[in-house]
Design a binder for these strands. Structure first.
Length: 492
RNA sequence: GGCCCCAUCGUCUAGGGGCCUAGGACAUCACCCUCUCAAGGUGGAGACACGGGUUCGAAUCCCGUUGGGGCUGCCA
């Protein structure tokens, strides 16, 4: 190692939404770069022209910025650097470290089975074209027949791999495209990457990368590797885009806050030395050490993510919270503009939202919202929870039929509504006075406050649970409140 | 099948020979607070996979077993 500032890179492939695993990898790279004063490079590995799409490239960058991970160089695009890979392949060919091959996968497998029986199936390429002197076809890297390749890994120690077991792998396709391993190593050499921090699934490929690096640039020091534990689902399988909910963009839409996301992600495989889990990015950056990363795979626990998010929501100022919630109230994320993913779809075990919480954006009154906001913050775990919490303040009463029937049929309900209708017009319209009023009417009807407030709550909000009633009434105003209670009394 | 990685409460983890009758967080249960629901407070239950070693002493070191995972593409 030299004493130069470290250079790290995040090298995503633009084949889909930004995966939470990728976000964690990017974050850990970023921690090291920021902590050491090093450089963080973003490199888009778009060598698979079949699967890449421009919008994914943009999406990844947006999502990275959103979680708070910025980069110093790039994005570089491998699709624009093919001349480097072509030169590297030629260098290898000239040095007899690579050769052309025209075998198909079927050819190779058939020969392996002939030579080794059923067990031969998983053996990999058999080196058939090594000495054939071909001048067309795919290009394979010629791996050594003996010796050991050791990977220096800050997290895993020094795993060793027998060279004889490493097959001659393809570095350039028959069609001319360059393979991941080749492009990856050429770029890491060219960009003087000193630390390769990536997910553990890359560990088995790392000896190939080391061999390639040594063949290409024996004078350039190898990078130090750090293979992060994989993030798994409830079944302990690697999180997959197909099976699992993994898109950072989706969590953002559901109303996960960026700092909560970053904070939670950082804790997948790492713990701050003082074991305090809720931390700012700056604090975590100062405390982060690759050597402290846990080795075992980690399950992505949405419930804990949501708990963290609740903490962050509660810690916001009213200004911050109002700004964060606005898109869910008046903007594109208002459920009236389309199906909003519910909390139930996010975290299992949560109650489905039975009332949509949708209302016309022009019904929104920010003054009203700000007045009640602290109570909303105590109850929302996701920003997408907010509309259903406050909708009754803006629209005609939502009505949960089950709650309505249960509450209005209870003894004393009619008397409570009548009493309220009689006395509320003359009471001071503050939460304290309203509370005293309902308490008093309750006593007259032999109801404790808990029971006494229920019919009024249902009349006004349509539900049995929700924001504190008297604060809500104060904010709703006398006219609207009286109308709703009257309507409830009349329709039953 | 082969190669590689891993193994502490349900989950994320602290722990790197005696400080451990194993600590924290999420989840869970109880109680308190309370206008509902939350939030908050207090308390409870809950783990060192198993078997051998090494050692005066092992969750911590070594070996094995078992279990889980990753890779094994002319994907990345």
């Amino acid at each position: 190692m030299t004493d130069q500032p470290p250079r790290l890179r995040f090298a995503p492939s633009p084949t889909g939404y930004f995966h939470v695993g990728g976000a964690r990898t990017a974050l850990f790279n970023w921690f090291i770069a920021r902590k050491t004063g090093g450089t963080f490079v973003l490199r888009i590995e778009d060598t698979d022209t079949e699967r890449n799409r421009d919008e994914w490239t943009q999406g990844i960058q947006d999502a990275m910025r959103w979680v708070g991970v910025d980069w110093d160089e790039g994005p570089y695009f491998q699709s624009e650097r093919t001349h480097l890979y072509a030169a590297a392949v030629q260098q290898l060919l000239d040095a007899k470290r690579a050769y052309f091959c025209t075998c198909t996968a079927d050819d190779s497998r058939a020969r392996n089975i002939t030579a080794h029986g059923k067990q031969g199936e998983g053996r990999g390429y058999d080196g058939f074209c090594r000495g054939r002197g071909l001048t067309t076809g795919a290009v394979r890297f010629r791996t050594p027949d003996e010796g050991i390749t050791t990977v220096i890994d800050l997290i895993r120690g020094e795993p060793q791999f027998e060279n004889s077991l490493i097959e001659d792998f393809v570095i350039r396709r028959t069609a001319g495209g360059f393979m991941f391993l080749l492009a990856n190593v050429v770029d890491d050499i060219d960009m003087r990457i000193s630390h390769v921090v990536r997910a553990e699934e890359h560990l088995p490929n790392t000896p190939k990368a080391v061999l390639l690096w040594q063949a290409l640039s024996p004078d350039v020091a190898l990078p130090v590797f750090a293979h992060l534990p994989v993030i798994v689902n409830e079944q302990r399988k690697k999180l997959s885009k197909r099976r699992d909910k993994v898109a950072v963009e989706d969590f953002r839409t559901q109303g996960i806050l960026a700092p909560a996301m970053a904070n939670y992600l950082a804790l997948l495989g790492w713990t701050p030395p003082d074991e305090v889990e809720i931390k700012t990015l700056a604090q975590m950056t100062a405390e982060f050490r690759l050597e402290g990363v846990h080795k075992a795979s980690a399950m992505f626990d949405i419930a804990k993510l949501c708990a963290f998010n609740g903490e962050y929501i509660r810690a916001m100022t009213i200004d911050e919270f109002t700004d964060a919630a606005r898109p869910y109230l008046t903007g594109p994320l208002n459920p009236i503009n389309g199906p909003l993913p519910t909390a139930a779809g996010l975290a299992e075990g949560q109650e489905p939202v039975t009332l949509p919480g949708a209302f016309p954006p022009d019904a929104f009154n920010e003054t009203v919202f700000r007045a009640i906001a602290p109570h909303v913050q105590d109850r929302a775990r996701l920003l997408s929870d907010v509309p259903a919490l406050v909708d009754f303040l803006y629209v005609v009463t939502p009505r949960d039929e089950a709650a309505w029937a249960k509450t209005m049929d209870a003894p004393g309900s009619s008397a409570m509504l009548d009493g309220f209708l009689n006395e509320a017009p003359s009471v001071e319209w503050t939460s304290d006075a309203l509370k005293s009023l309902v308490e008093r009417i309750g006593v007259a009807n032999e109801l404790k406050l808990g029971k006494a407030q229920a019919p009024i709550r249902v009349a006004v909000s349509g539900r049995t649970v929700g924001l504190p009633l008297f604060e809500s009434l104060e904010v709703l105003g006398r006219n609207e409140t009286m109308q709703r209670v009257l309507a409830a009394r009349q329709t039953g």
